[in-house]
């Protein structure tokens, strides 16, 4: 099968850190997959296994039908990765950075040079192509790395937190670029910006403590969560229609997440009651909190409780 298939992947570091537990999913060879999850959830570990940098402890995975564990050489022809902690080499200019990566992929010098310049231009950093890496701003460095892999012939791209450290305008530029690419590429990314995942991804995976809690399009995730709509009442006093429902209190109001049917029933009542409220499809943030909530709670109750 074309695309990515992951079957029961587990990874244990040093026999004691369970970084991934029995993870299975699949995704076609076009489009954007985003993995979200808290720090240490296992996103980088998963990505490094898929990119043939790290061996899984158990399970198997294929990319376009080629086994990641058994045939890394063939997989490496198809993929390119920007690791989470990759850095632009301070002694290279962006042009030299992209060029040398393309040489590693086996391009001839002249084609590599042409592709390098074109890719830097596409990311809007052509004007920095001859500036040494150590003189570039943090965000520009990040873009150089993205330009590096996108300049290559690889059509399956792994980006571990590609937009961390980018300003809002640069981030939007990268988003636009990724959106343009997604009809021809499979882009597998991780992010802590939930709006990024919601906006870009055709499929979003929520990882927590090495487990894939849910995966699917934002609509599928809403269905899985059983709560498609979020009602936010912006008044201190809880309206009568909401009494008896479990709501979440926030500064100056109450939030209720519920099914589509229930949400419309309640909004009718709230209108009649003249309550101030908004109703929206639940955001990825709401869903993420819902899925990750249990583990957060269990962590809090087991916490030391030192106040400061």
């Amino acid at each position: 099968m074309r695309g990515v298939v992951c079957k029961g992947i587990s990874k244990t570091y040093d026999r004691k850190t369970y970084a991934l537990r029995n993870m299975s999913f699949s995704f076609p060879d076009r489009g954007i997959v985003a993995m979200i999850g808290r720090n240490g959830a296992g996103k980088t570990t998963l990505m490094r296994i898929m990119a043939t940098e790290l061996m899984p402890s158990k399970g198997s995975a294929t990319i376009n039908g080629i086994d990641v564990v058994k045939e890394p050489g063939r997989v490496r022809e198809l993929i390119a990765i920007v690791p989470q902690e990759a850095r632009v080499m301070p002694w290279l200019t962006p042009r030299q950075t992209v060029l040398s990566y393309l040489l590693y992929r086996g391009f001839g010098y002249h084609e590599a040079l042409t592709r390098a310049r074109r890719s830097l231009g596409k990311l809007g950093i052509g004007k920095f192509e001859n500036v040494l890496g150590h003189k570039l701003s943090g965000g520009t460095k990040r873009k150089v790395l993205v330009a590096t892999v996108l300049a290559s012939e690889a059509k399956i791209i792994f980006l571990d937190e590609p937009t961390t450290g980018l300003d809002p305008i640069s981030r939007a530029e990268v988003w636009r670029l990724l959106q343009r690419l997604k009809s021809n590429y499979l882009i597998f990314l991780t992010t802590h910006y939930l709006e990024e995942a919601e906006l870009l991804a055709d499929s979003i995976g929520i990882i927590d403590r090495g487990k894939l809690l849910a995966m699917g399009s934002i609509d599928e995730l809403r269905k899985k969560a059983g709560q498609q709509y979020s009602i936010r009442v912006t008044q201190e006093v809880k309206p009568r229609s909401l009494r008896g429902y479990k709501t979440t209190k926030f500064e100056g109001g109450h939030q209720l997440m519920t099914s589509e049917k229930k949400a419309f029933e309640l909004s009718d009542k709230l209108i009649r009651e003249k309550a101030r409220f908004t109703i929206n499809p639940v955001s990825l943030e709401d869903i993420f909190y819902r899925f990750a909530k249990k583990s957060i709670e269990s962590e809090e109750t087991s916490g030391g409780g030192d106040e400061w």
């Binding site: 490094r48 990119a51 490496r76 990765i81 990759a86 850095r87 992929r105 086996g106």
Partner: peptide, 18 residues
Amino acid sequence: HLKNDMKLQDMVVSSPTT
């Protein structure tokens, strides 16, 4: 240095260079 500080080696491992 290239492996640990730059992660160049990771990028090369995942590329066609042996």
